[in-house]
Amino acid sequence: MQLLNRLLNRFEEVVIGSAILIVSLLILVNVVLRYLFGTGINWTEEMVRFLMILVTFVGASICVRQGSHISVDFLFNLLKGKAKKWLTLCIYLICVIFTASMAWYSLEIIQQNMRFIQKAPALQIPMYIPYLILPLGLFLCTIRYIQEIYYIFRPGNKPSKEEAL
């Protein structure tokens, strides 16, 4: 279980770390090509967008694990002890209901795009491929929220901050 968790962490980090590096390099290559040869790669822009969407959704899962999603924690900081625990549970329940439903409903978009053909204009790949980012990221978020709910009741099992990068 611990091993699986660590593998999952590593997977998320490698995916988003390399994606954001590739984006920077792609942009550089495109500027250089245009400056030297007056032309560019026609799929750069589209690829950059899809990679950043990948970074966002997989990164969102890491944010869940780190508890770093931006929120208004005014009330949260006022509460102590039991009340705080129940509020946390309540927040995480809303979150997990949302991410799980969205992971499910995003499959509808994939289905639609597999039934009909829709191609990404520049890359000319079927659109369901980039759309797979949605169920992937939202499913990861769902797992993370379930983990967090588990840690509310078993705080001893929560990995330390360092382990979570």
Partner: peptide, 19 residues
């Protein structure tokens, strides 16, 4: 535009299409 046919047309005319 990123549409392949638009890019091909510009190339055929001799221009450098930049997406």
């Amino acid at each position: 535009m990123e549409a392949p046919i638009v890019i091909s047309t510009m190339e055929a005319l001799g221009a450098n299409p930049v997406p």
